[in-house]
Structure formats: structure tokens, C-alpha cells
């Protein structure tokens, strides 16, 4: 319980920093920290495989890519903060937050289900992934291929 509160606090702190930091690199590092803390949250929910994948894919690949693009473009501009716009956006987000929180007032499940020790390990995920989700798995790999080709085509210099 205490662990959850510490992790939740850190997650919220870093994610707020993502939105409020005016420097892009600071935002990116805050997001990397958020993703890292969320990986630990996944561990508390018996999802060790996904926790590690979260670090590997999000923090290790996607965030590095974003940082790489930031350095490549090197915009070096600090964003202005129009007060009215920020106020409006924050209010809207708070309203959305209240609405979503109202939805979880009566969740469908209350108690934890009993799970085997191997829950969330590589075997159990692979079992599900390659039997029930074999077709989506294939489609996901095609999606990645399309994304690679699309990215190369978009970012390539026109000759």
C-alpha cells in the first residue's frame, strides 16, 4: 500500500513535469522517469515481463528516439506560456479527471483474483500470445514493417 502511494506520487509528479516543463529535453527526461516508475508499478501488479518490456521499449527505444530527434533538430526555443490557454486546458483536464474518477466508483471487480506464481511471466504471456492472439501478433509485425517503411519514406531527403 505504502509502495503504491510512493510510486503513484512519483508518477504524478513526473508526468506533471512532462506537461509543465518549458524545455523539451526536460520534458523528455521527465517522461522517461514517468515510464520507469510505471514499470515498477507494473511489477507490483504481477506483470514482471511487461514491466521490463516497458523499460526496454518505451524508456529504451521510444524515448531515446525522441531525444535523438530533439538533438537532431535542436530547436533551442523555450515555449511561451499563455496564461489563459493554460488555465483553460488545466480546467478541462480536471473536469475529465473527475468524470473518469466517477466512473471507477463502482468497479466490476473488488478483490484480487488468485493467480499462479507464473502469472505475468514469459511463459504465460507467450501461451496467450501465440494461441489466442496469433493473428493480431502477425498483424502487429506487419504494422511495424509498415511503420519502418513509412518512417524511412517520410524522413528521407528528397532527391
Amino acid at each position: 500500500m505504502i509502495v503504491f502511494f510512493i510510486l503513484a506520487f512519483l508518477t504524478l509528479l513526473f508526468s506533471l513535469l512532462v506537461v509543465t516543463q518549458r524545455n523539451v529535453v526536460h520534458s523528455a527526461m521527465a517522461l522517461a522517469a514517468t515510464l520507469f516508475v510505471m514499470a515498477v508499478l507494473f511489477l507490483t501488479l504481477d506483470a514482471p515481463m511487461l514491466g521490463v518490456l516497458q523499460i526496454l521499449v518505451y524508456a529504451g527505444a521510444i524515448m531515446i528516439l525522441i531525444l535523438f530527434v530533439i538533438m537532431l533538430l535542436n530547436p533551442l526555443s523555450i515555449e511561451a506560456r499563455p496564461a489563459a490557454w493554460w488555465m483553460l486546458g488545466s480546467l478541462g483536464a480536471a473536469a475529465l479527471c473527475l468524470q473518469l474518477a466517477a466512473l471507477v466508483h463502482r468497479p466490476a471487480v473488488s478483490a484480487e483474483a488468485a493467480v499462479p506464481a507464473s502469472f505475468g511471466g514469459p511463459e504465460s504471456i507467450a501461451q496467450s500470445l501465440f494461441t489466442d492472439f496469433a493473428l493480431p501478433f502477425g498483424l502487429a509485425s506487419v504494422l511495424l514493417l509498415v511503420a519502418i517503411i513509412g518512417a524511412v519514406a517520410l524522413a528521407q531527403r528528397q532527391r
Partner: peptide, 25 residues
């Protein structure tokens, strides 16, 4: 002793890029 030890190694190895990129910037 993690049952996902190899993945853990790669996750940590992928984090080592941050030091360089952030230090450089």
C-alpha cells in the same frame, strides 16, 4: 534470480544511452 533475467539485462543496457545523450546535450 529473475525469470526474465536476459530481458532485464537488455532493458538496463538500453538505458545506458541516456547518460551520453543527456551529458552531450
Amino acid at each position: 534470480n529473475l525469470n526474465i533475467g536476459i530481458l532485464y539485462i537488455f532493458a538496463m543496457a538500453s538505458l545506458s544511452v541516456y547518460g551520453i545523450v543527456i551529458g552531450a546535450w
